[in-house]
Amino acid sequence: MCTGRVDLSFIFHAFRKGADGVIIGGCWPGECHYVTEGNYDALGNLHLARKLLGLVGVDPERIRLEWIAASEGSRFAEVMSDFVSTVDGLGPLGLPGAEDLDRRLEAAERVIPFLKLVEREKLRVPERSEAAYNELFASEEVDRLFRDLVAEKLLTSQILALLRLGPRAAGEIAESLGLSPAEVSAGLGASSRQGLVTYDVERSCYALA
């Protein structure tokens, strides 16, 4: 099993189960013992995870990928101590006032399959190098993809997660998700068209279809 095996869902699962930070340790780029160089895939996943975390309001610094060779015991210790102090500085993830955190993370988790499809169809890293990965994921192109494709899916996913708890009025939904009424009505419109959500006229609120 390689670092590139670390599924995005493992990361979000860990956050949902109470981890305050997730660190992935991989072999140094260029030092793969095999032909796969899956550490670059791990790098790609790190970038995806960070962007997705950002969209659900979790500090992307809570996830880290570090290159540590099996022989670098002291580096491992240094990296872990440093990461622990970063996470300590950020504080526990589930602070009071963040009750909806699990819902947001759940919404993110549900977007992962879609995100993988987007990666498959839209993201092409020109070469296996750290620079190429970092450049691609910092590009305007990827930002736009996240804005146009992933953010909308995530909004739908968040609305569905909320409605799973029971019917809500549009205003309540906007408040719970910390979004503007316009954003929520766009999200509700899309979800209704897809047949995922219905409007209960009598109680003037939205519910799962």
Binding site: M1, C2, G4, R5, D7, T36, D41, N45, P113, R120
Partner: peptide
């Protein structure tokens, strides 16, 4: 070779790495 890169890419969990399953 059981590196499991494919599993992390599959959008529908249609491929599983035996002994290191999801």
């Amino acid at each position: 070779k059981g590196d499991g890169l494919c599993c992390a890419k599959c959008p529908t969990d249609a491929i599983r790495l035996k002994h290191f399953t999801n």
